[in-house]
Design a protein around this nucleic acid. Structure first.
Lengths: 243, 243
DNA sequence: ACCTGAACACCGTTCAAGT
DNA sequence: ACCTGAACACCGTTCAAGT
C-alpha cells in the first residue's frame, strides 16, 4: 500500500528549492520514474480542479508527461486507481480521541468532516457509492474509531454494525448531491434553480396542495440546517437503542 | 411530457397480433418514425438487461434500427434522456391512499417500494443522485403523497420538508449500493466477498479490536434487516418531532 | 526488464449533405 | 422539413515492438 497523508515523505519535510533551481527540479521530477503514489496524487489534484469526470487515464498520464499505457504498470485499471484515491481522501477525515461521554457530538463531527472532505474532492462520493466496503488502511481506521464510539455508548453490537454503515452512508449521499452539479457554471446553476422555482410555483394548487404549502420552506437556502437535521434524527434514533 | 406508465396507450389495450402477423407488425414498428416515448422505453429496457452503463446513445439507436444522431431530434442530450427514464421509473412506485393513522407504516412501505423499483433498474439510482430535484410528473406525485403523510402525522412543515428529502435519500443510497456490482458476474462477486472476509480476519487484533469483535455481525447476510433498521431509525427520529 | 506508440473497440455530439 | 453518414474529439485497455 502507498503512504497515507498522515505520514510525511522525506521530500515534504525538506526545505523548498530556491527559485533559480525550480525549473531543474521540475524537470527532474518529470523524468523520475513513475510510482503508484505519484499517479494517485496527480489524479486527485486533477479531481480537485476539474472533478472526477475529467480524470481519465489519458489525462492523468498527460499530466505526468507520459502515455496512458505506462500507468498500467502501477495500477491494474481505472477502478483500482479510484479506490486508491478514495483511501487517500478518507485519510483527510480527522480522527477524534474517543470520549465516551461525548459520543453523540463526536459522531456528528465525524459526519460533518466526512461531508466537508468529500465536498472538497468533487466526484469522490461517487466512488464510495460504487465501492462495496472500502478496505484501505484509512477506511479501516475510521471504521474502528466509529465502532469504539458506538459500542462505548452502550449500543448492542448488531445496532453498532448497522449504525456505522448508516453514519457513512448519510454524509456521502449529501456529498453526492452537493457535488453533482460541479461541472455546471454558476450561471447555469442559477438558471436551473430559478427554472425549478417557476415550475413549482406554476403547479395546479388542487393537485399539489402540500407541495405548494411547503414550497417556501423547500426553496429556502438552508442546506446546512438540512444536513444537521439528518444528523440529529440519526442521533435521536440511536439513543432509543442505548441499553 | 410523455405518457407515464399509469396511462395506457391505445396499442397496449388492443388484442395482440396473431403469430403469423407479428413479423409484419415488428417491421412496421421498426419503420414507424421515432418519438421520445419509444426512445425512453427502449433505453430503460436496455438498462434492465445490461445496466445503465451499457446504455449509450449509440446502443439505444442501434436497438431502434437507426443512428445515434437521429435521437437528438427527440432528446436534447444523454442527460435529458436519463431524466426522462427516471420519471418513468418513479412512476412504478405504488402510491398509497394516505391513512393518517398508519403514517409510519405507509412511509416505510414507500421506502421499501422505492428500493425494490430502483433495484430492478440497475443504475437508475445513480441518476437520482445526479438530479438535484426530480421534477417529472411522477416524482411530483410521490412527493405530494409523502408530504400528505408527514403533515398528517403532525410534523411541522420545516421537519416535513427535511424528512421528505431524507426518505427519498435513504432507499436510493441503498439501491446505489446494491446495484453497484451489477456488471460483475456471480463468480466475481463471490470471489470479492471471500477476499474481503479473509482480509478482515487477518487484521491485527490490537489495532482493530472493535472491528474484529463485530466482524461476524457485519459479515452475516442480513441486507434486508439492515435496510429495515435504517427505516425504523428514521421513524423513531421523526416521532420525536410529532407535535 | 522496462516502457510506449499504435491499434482496437468503443464514447457523445455536431453538422453538412442528402432525400 | 426531416433525417443521417461521416467526422471530431475524446474514452479504457492491450500488446507488439522498441530501447
Amino acid at each position: 500500500m502507498f503512504a497515507g497523508p498522515r505520514e510525511l515523505e522525506v521530500s515534504e519535510m525538506s526545505v523548498p528549492d530556491p527559485p533559480w533551481q525550480q525549473r531543474a527540479a521540475r524537470k527532474r521530477s518529470a523524468k523520475r520514474p513513475l510510482d503508484t503514489d505519484v499517479i494517485v496524487r496527480t489524479a486527485l489534484e486533477l479531481t480537485d480542479r476539474e472533478g472526477l469526470d475529467a480524470v481519465s487515464m489519458r489525462r492523468v498520464a498527460q499530466e505526468l508527461g507520459t502515455g496512458a499505457a505506462s500507468l498500467y504498470a502501477y495500477v491494474r485499471n481505472k477502478s483500482e486507481l479510484q479506490e486508491l484515491m478514495l483511501d487517500l481522501v478518507i485519510g483527510e477525515v480527522p480522527l477524534p480521541e474517543p470520549d465516551p461521554a461525548r459520543w453523540e457530538e463526536q459522531l456528528k463531527q465525524f459526519a460533518r468532516d466526512q461531508l466537508r472532505v468529500f465536498t472538497a474532492h468533487p466526484g469522490m462520493a461517487q466512488v464510495v457509492a460504487r465501492t462495496p466496503a472500502p478496505t484501505g488502511p484509512n477506511a479501516l481506521q475510521v471504521t474502528e474509531t466509529m465502532l469504539t464510539l458506538l459500542r462505548g455508548a452502550g449500543l448492542p453490537d448488531r445496532i453498532a454494525a448497522f449504525a456505522v454503515d448508516l453514519l457513512a452512508l448519510y454524509p456521502n449521499a449529501i456529498a453526492l448531491e452537493r457535488t453533482a452539479d460541479f461541472a455546471l457554471t454558476d450561471g447555469e446553476r442559477d438558471e436551473r434553480m430559478s427554472q425549478v422555482e417557476d415550475y413549482f410555483a406554476a403547479l395546479p394548487a388542487e393537485r399539489f396542495p402540500n407541495l405548494l404549502a411547503i414550497l417556501p420552506v423547500m426553496m429556502s437556502d438552508e442546506g446546512e440546517e438540512r444536513f444537521e437535521f439528518g444528523l440529529e434524527l440519526i442521533m435521536r434514533g440511536l439513543r432509543s437503542w442505548v441499553e
